[in-house]
Design a protein around this nucleic acid. Sequence first.
DNA 1: CCTATACTTTACTTTATGGTAAAGTATCGG
DNA 2: CCGATACTTTACCATAAAGTAAAGTATAGG
Lengths: 110, 110
Amino acid sequence: MVKYRDGEKMLDALGLPLRRSMVRRLWHGGAMSLSKLAAPYELTLPAALKHLRVLEDSGIVKSHKRGRVRVCIYNPSALKELGGWLASHSAFWESSFDRFEAIINKKKKN
Amino acid sequence: MVKYRDGEKMLDALGLPLRRSMVRRLWHGGAMSLSKLAAPYELTLPAALKHLRVLEDSGIVKSHKRGRVRVCIYNPSALKELGGWLASHSAFWESSFDRFEAIINKKKKN
DNA sequence: CCTATACTTTACTTTATGGTAAAGTATCGG
DNA sequence: CCGATACTTTACCATAAAGTAAAGTATAGG
């Protein structure tokens, strides 16, 4: 089961057009190596790896090493769950609101 | 009817924790003025206005002037539609993929 | 009217993060 | 083994976007 914390991470991850495009590539083209994933963009491998890590950390993408190749795979269930939450706009917004407000209030001087 | 283009804008808008918090405030606390919306954060009014504009442009939030006060309102249907798309991961990903790839390919020299 | 309020605009400054190059590590293929 | 390949790490840079201050506009209230 995914938690609302992952919802936040997913929204952060999807906040960049480039990363959304990478997700689409994986969703469209199936599993592929990091190099192949990065190929259409004017990106060095380190940059592509950084973005992959953000996507992986959010749960939208999975990856594993097969020899010297990093195989990247789209994880449909992650966005399906995020979508479910947004559609019903319930648990996700409620709980993360409280967390965020707590931080903000601590920061303010009153 | 909202288009997939708005889905892109919504994801861009929700890509910042601060803006997500603002959406939660409006969802939680109902309609409020820009000043009241901005109050919990260490933000000047111009900065808050910028973020409001991004949210408004995406359709997640609506606003109108009532005298000298800008009243901000959460629009539940926007995120509901985005959620529906993500949950069914179909139209949104398909169509915006083509658009984005076209731009990328034009940029690359081959 | 006159002052205060509530933005809004303009013209910047600052900083976070997206990007790179270069060197390092691990695996493959002959 | 040995060179080539496919990342990975480290250290740094460049800029877009988030932020500000200051001045401008419009409305409210006495």
